[in-house]
Structures are given as C-alpha cells and as structure tokens.
Design a binder for these strands. Structure first.
Length: 289
DNA sequence: TAACCATCCTGTTAGC
DNA sequence: TGCTAACAGGATGGTT
C-alpha cells in the first residue's frame, strides 16, 4: 500500500528520468485510471502530448509533475496498488493502464508505464492553486485540501496538536485523516501507535499533549526509517520505478503480525476490524487510558 | 459543520 | 480439481 515513504521513493526515482523530458505520446488502456481527470481520455492525451516535464513534487500520497508553459500539472495517485515503472521502449508490464512515451534530451527514449491492479489510483491533468496553509505553496487544485506531511519541514506541530485536541474522534481515524496530517496510511498508523504505546481507539480529546507529541515523534521516526529502507513491500504490489522491492516489511512490529509475539512484551499481537480494514496492536502495551 | 461509512476495484487465497 | 466467497485499503461523496 503506497504511503508517504513509498510515494517519496517513486517521486525521487522519477526525478532524474522525467525532469526535462518531453511527452512524445500517450496511450490510455483503461479509462477508469482517469477517474480524477475532469474530461475524456482524448482531452487528457491532448493536454499532455508534446509537453515538457519539470521536477516531480509531492504532498502526502499525491505527487505531480509540473508541465512547461503554463500552470498545468500531471497529478498521480497510486491508490492501493498503483506503480510507476520506467522502462525502455520495448518493455511491457501486465496491467498497464496508461503509458507515456518520453523523449529525454540526455537519456533518450523512455517508457513510463502506470500499472494498477485494483484501479484505485489515477492520473489527471490539473492546475496549480495556492494553499490555505502557511507558508504559501502552489499545489494542484485537487490536492489543496491535503495537509502537509510530518516530514515536511514546514509542517506546523502546534497547529496539528491543537486541531487534534479539538477533534471528536479516535486517534487512528485522526492519523488517517489526510486533511489533518498527510502521508500516513494503515501500515504506518499501526506501527506509529505501537511505538507510542497508544490504542487505536483512544479518543483524541483524552490523549493529552505529552502523548500526542510522543506519537507525532514516533510517526516521524517510523516514516523516516521506512523511507531509508525504500518503503514496505509485501509482494509485487509496491515496487520502485525500477521494479525493485523495499525492505521495511522486515522491520514491522505490529502490522500484519497478528499471532506473533509483541517485540516489546511478548504477548501476541491482535488484529481487529476497524474502519473497513485491519488494526494491529498489542493488547498489553496499547490500552485505552 | 463534523463525523462516519459504503463504495469503488481485482488478484489471490481459503474453504468447500 | 474447480468454483465461490472473503480479503486487502485510500479517497470520496452521500448520509447522519
């Protein structure tokens, strides 16, 4: 499941390959991958073909590639199973939904395959607008509601903690709320909560400033470590732009570890249904209090 | 206005 | 062996 570390690994991998490249042609194999595009596939192809790409940017799990000569950008979201694979001109990938043929002045011809098994991801052309948070940043209009991520040096801890304490919800729901803090998904929410010894159903109102601060620190630690290890791969669902797996799955303490002993106290990790997904936690270390 | 939840989607796997 | 149902979860729009 691509979360912040996985998306950042892909963004960084794309940067040297696409910056300065021109889009020679576009093929849309599955229109459903354009769900977030405001027009038909012909419009997507017309607006992208012939454009020169600039350095990719990211906010949370969304990334975008600015297009030369205007305020338009190519927005990418990987959803559950999206992959961006850089290939030579002859390489095909199973379940490629959209293909871009690129021409790079230094690297020559390059193929960008947008592969997506479950089609929760998407590509779209969008325009940049200023954000409401400070300092001002230009982001695609469809991304304007997404908060900064905790690895962004402009992330405002005080604002986050204040908003968190005012919410009438529970902590895992809050961590997954991309308008409050972005980039965290189910895996890293469970890992951060395990590290901070907080139960997923702890009400945000009773968490307290000290524990909230500690949780934010653990979120940063977990994301930073996962990023350093190239992201989390369980199977071929997440690969970097070169088709390689990340290694963070070897470092997981809670997510997917149901039945395994908690690395801290030895009690078996439990998995419960929560928000239409799984929540993994240690019933001894992580209690509502 | 905020919180919650069904929905989208398909390859894999477990169960019969 | 082959069929069916359950499962995985990010974002969103509709409902409460």
């Amino acid at each position: 499941m691509p979360e912040l570390p996985e998306v950042e690994v892909i963004r960084a991998g794309l940067e040297p390959a696409v910056t300065g490249a021109t889009v020679a042609s576009v093929v849309v194999y599955d229109e459903r991958s354009l769900r977030r595009h405001p027009g038909p596939s012909e419009d997507f192809i017309d607006r992208l073909t012939g454009r020169r790409m600039l350095a990719p940017e990211r906010r949370g799990k969304f990334m975008w590639i600015p297009l030369d000569g205007g305020a338009e950008v190519l927005v990418l979201h990987l959803g559950m199973s999206g992959q961006v694979l850089l290939r030579d001109r002859d390489t095909d990938d199973l379940r490629t939904r959209i293909r871009l043929e690129l021409a790079h002045p230094a690297h020559g011809p390059l193929r960008l395959n947008f592969v997506d098994q479950r089609i929760f991801g998407s590509m779209a052309i969008d325009t940049l607008v200023p954000t409401s948070d400070q300092p001002l940043q230009l982001v695609p209009a469809s991304v304007a509601h997404i908060a900064r991520d905790p690895l962004d040096e402009r992330f405002d801890d005080a604002t986050f903690l204040a908003r968190l304490s005012r919410k009438n919800t529970t902590i895992k729901r809050a961590l997954l709320d991309q308008t409050l803090i972005s980039g965290v998904g189910n895996i890293y929410a469970d890992e951060s909560l395990w590290a901070a010894e907080i139960h997923y159903d702890q009400p945000t109102a009773t968490l307290g400033r000290t524990r909230a601060n500690a949780l934010l620190a653990e979120v940063r630690t977990v994301l930073t470590k996962a990023l350093a290890e190239g992201g989390t791969s369980f199977d071929a669902q997440y690969l970097n732009v070169n088709g390689q797996s990340g290694y963070f799955a070897h470092s997981l303490n809670a997510y997917g570890q149901q039945g395994e002993p908690c690395p801290r106290c030895g009690r078996p990790i439990v998995r419960e249904q929560f928000m239409n997904r799984g929540s993994h936690f240690c019933p001894r270390c992580q209690r509502v209090r």
